[in-house]
Amino acid sequence: MRIATLGPAGTFSEIAACEYGRQLDNYTLQFYPALARVLKAVPEEADIAVVPIENIVEGVVSPVIDTFVKRPLEIIAELSIPVRFSLVANHRSPAKIYAQFVAQGQCSECLSQYDVPVMNTASNSEALQLLLQSHEPAAAVVPEHCLGDHNFAHTQHDVTDYAHNETRFVAVREAKGNSVPRASDVRYKTSLLIIDDTDHPGLLVEHLQVFAAYRVNLTSLVSRPTGQAFGQYHFYIECEGHHEDTAIRAALTLIKLRNKVMLLGSYPNAGAV
């Protein structure tokens, strides 16, 4: 099984892809430099793509959700990966800090303590390499799992703004119309898109009332611009349960009377206990 994910090696995406791969009999990883390329690799270059969809601090990953509107993909699994960063330096008074731009946003409180420029890098691995190659006082924000056996003059562990920072990843494949088989002892989550093709006053309220009437618990609701005109949006929704559940089927039947619904898949809920 060929799994595409965001590279280079050492990323949280690699951790998520490997965790998903361990559920398979055999797999190979293929790294791509951007999320768009990861998703585009399915199905010709890869069978499955593992991509981030939401972070506790940064929120949803918009390019992934927008791709669902444009391409026939389905979600078959989700994984929650803890995100822990350390700030490491070759000197106690660094003159600059290397940080991947997402890592910078998730560690902003720590970085604000240093009155030095932050140099954005394409990846966390690049931030570490630039620090190791630097002959000037410098620091880098690095995932804790990448620290290895390196010796640094200064190390500050767990510098994320939120102590329990996590990123949620999803495994997606080409839409096949046959969802993950439902098991009675598994708690599921369902993802779907409501396409804004008949906009009218009260549209979103109507949909929320339908879900409430059938007691379907929504866990995520994100509006994304259609790219056609101001004020026009698609809605990405996640809810508890499998799309074959009676309540969800009934709710979607009513919603489909007014708008197009794209079912993105039902899959085991990684957060269920």
Rank of each mutant, 00 (worst) to 15 (best):
residue 68 F to N: 05
residue 57 V to D: 12
residue 245 D to T: 07
residue 253 T to K: 15
residue 94 P to A: 07
residue 106 Q to E: 15
residue 245 D to C: 06
residue 135 H to N: 13
residue 210 V to N: 06
residue 250 A to Y: 02
residue 66 D to Q: 12
residue 87 L to F: 14
residue 19 E to S: 13
residue 148 G to W: 02
residue 201 P to H: 03
residue 158 D to I: 06
residue 244 E to C: 09
residue 144 E to A: 07
residue 188 Y to S: 11
residue 214 Y to L: 05
residue 110 C to L: 07
residue 133 Q to S: 12
residue 190 T to I: 08
residue 233 Y to N: 09
residue 270 A to D: 12
residue 49 A to E: 03
residue 164 H to W: 10
residue 188 Y to L: 10
residue 217 N to H: 11
residue 184 S to C: 08
residue 64 V to D: 04
residue 273 V to D: 15
residue 60 V to Q: 04
residue 200 H to W: 09
residue 4 A to S: 15
residue 210 V to C: 02
residue 14 E to F: 04
residue 232 Q to H: 14
residue 252 L to I: 14
residue 92 R to N: 13
residue 49 A to H: 05
residue 107 C to F: 00
residue 243 H to G: 00
residue 25 D to M: 09
residue 249 R to A: 14
residue 14 E to H: 05
residue 155 T to K: 12
residue 38 V to S: 03
residue 19 E to A: 14
residue 21 G to W: 02
residue 8 P to M: 05
residue 217 N to Q: 11
residue 206 E to L: 10
residue 134 S to E: 07
residue 17 A to I: 01
residue 126 E to M: 03
residue 107 C to H: 01
residue 261 V to E: 10
residue 179 S to Y: 12
residue 130 L to D: 01
residue 249 R to H: 11
residue 99 A to I: 03
residue 7 G to D: 01
residue 47 D to S: 11
residue 155 T to Y: 00
residue 223 S to V: 11
residue 157 H to G: 08
residue 50 V to K: 01
residue 62 S to T: 13
residue 18 C to V: 15
residue 264 L to A: 02
residue 225 P to G: 01
residue 203 L to W: 08
residue 211 F to V: 04
residue 96 K to T: 08
residue 251 A to F: 06
residue 50 V to M: 05
residue 225 P to A: 03
residue 141 V to I: 15
residue 78 E to T: 11
residue 55 N to P: 04
residue 3 I to R: 06
residue 113 Q to T: 12
residue 24 L to H: 11
residue 69 V to Y: 12
residue 160 T to S: 10
residue 242 H to Y: 15
residue 150 H to M: 01
residue 86 S to Q: 06
residue 154 H to P: 00
residue 150 H to K: 03
residue 137 P to F: 04
residue 249 R to Y: 12
residue 201 P to D: 03
residue 96 K to A: 09
residue 268 P to C: 10
residue 252 L to W: 04
residue 270 A to R: 15
residue 178 N to S: 14
residue 218 L to G: 05
residue 9 A to H: 10
residue 215 R to W: 05
residue 169 F to Y: 15
residue 37 R to Q: 15
residue 163 A to P: 12
residue 42 V to C: 06
residue 56 I to F: 09
residue 35 L to C: 01
residue 241 G to D: 07
residue 80 S to D: 14
residue 100 Q to H: 12
residue 192 L to D: 08
residue 33 P to Q: 04
residue 261 V to P: 06
residue 92 R to F: 07
residue 122 A to P: 00
residue 74 E to K: 06
residue 244 E to I: 11
